[in-house]
Simulated assay, not measured.
Amino acid sequence: MVETKLEVVVLPVADVDRAKDFYTALGWREDADVTTGDDFRVVQMTPPGSACSVIFGTGVTSDAPGSAHGLHLIVDDIEAARAELADHGAEMSEVFHDTGGVFHHAGSRERASGLAPDRTSYGSFASFSDPDGNGWYLQEITTRLPGR
């Protein structure tokens, strides 16, 4: 099987500089900021420790600003990560878990406040949005499933 790697996710934003300032404040690394005219600019940024980056800009997507949802940042300590992102300007939700214990449902359905029971790996979440409304989740993973 041909090896494939997810390395870039495109975020639709309305204001490139505002988005760049937001992600920079979160501590994300700027990999590129290239403009080739009035109608094309691409900014690439990478979260600390991630092999996958985000790209946003002018002329890089026709999707509506704020329409990217369900993006996950994996952390090994959700409480520390939540506090750090909040300190850097992200409006964070409280930590929550899904009552089904597998993965969070869409919206807030089956959502319970606090860490997953027994702090089960894959079970605790927190969320935030960027200034355009692109939606992010933190997910705590301390022990990977077999084969991961």
Score class of each variant (00 low, 15 high):
140 E>M: 06
29 R>Y: 00
39 D>H: 03
13 V>F: 07
69 H>Y: 00
144 R>P: 01
39 D>Q: 01
72 H>V: 15
136 W>C: 04
95 V>A: 05
89 G>S: 04
15 D>P: 11
142 T>M: 02
120 T>A: 14
62 S>G: 15
72 H>Y: 15
42 V>Y: 05
54 V>W: 01
106 A>Y: 13
13 V>Y: 04
1 M>I: 12
88 H>D: 07
81 A>H: 05
95 V>C: 05
68 A>F: 14
97 H>W: 09
25 A>D: 03
131 P>H: 08
116 A>V: 10
90 A>E: 02
76 D>T: 15
70 G>V: 13
119 R>Y: 07
32 A>D: 04
45 M>N: 05
28 W>F: 13
26 L>D: 01
12 P>E: 04
122 Y>V: 03
84 E>D: 15
12 P>V: 06
141 I>M: 08
109 R>N: 14
124 S>P: 06
144 R>H: 08
30 E>F: 06
34 V>T: 02
116 A>K: 07
56 F>K: 04
121 S>C: 04
60 V>P: 06
25 A>L: 02
54 V>R: 00
109 R>W: 15
94 E>F: 06
41 R>P: 02
2 V>S: 12
41 R>C: 02
79 E>L: 10
81 A>Q: 05
48 P>C: 11
12 P>C: 01
67 S>A: 10
111 R>P: 02
68 A>K: 15
132 D>P: 12
36 T>E: 09
8 V>A: 03
70 G>K: 09
15 D>K: 13
134 N>Y: 00
105 H>P: 00
86 A>T: 08
58 T>I: 15
87 D>A: 12
128 F>W: 02
106 A>T: 11
51 A>Y: 12
89 G>L: 07
45 M>F: 12
78 I>P: 04
73 L>K: 07
2 V>L: 13
107 G>I: 06
106 A>G: 11
105 H>A: 14
72 H>Q: 15
16 V>A: 10
35 T>P: 00
15 D>H: 14
7 E>Q: 12
63 D>K: 09
45 M>T: 08
93 S>W: 01
72 H>G: 14
84 E>P: 06
57 G>P: 00
95 V>K: 04
41 R>M: 03
10 V>P: 00
56 F>Y: 07
5 K>Y: 15
97 H>C: 10
27 G>L: 09
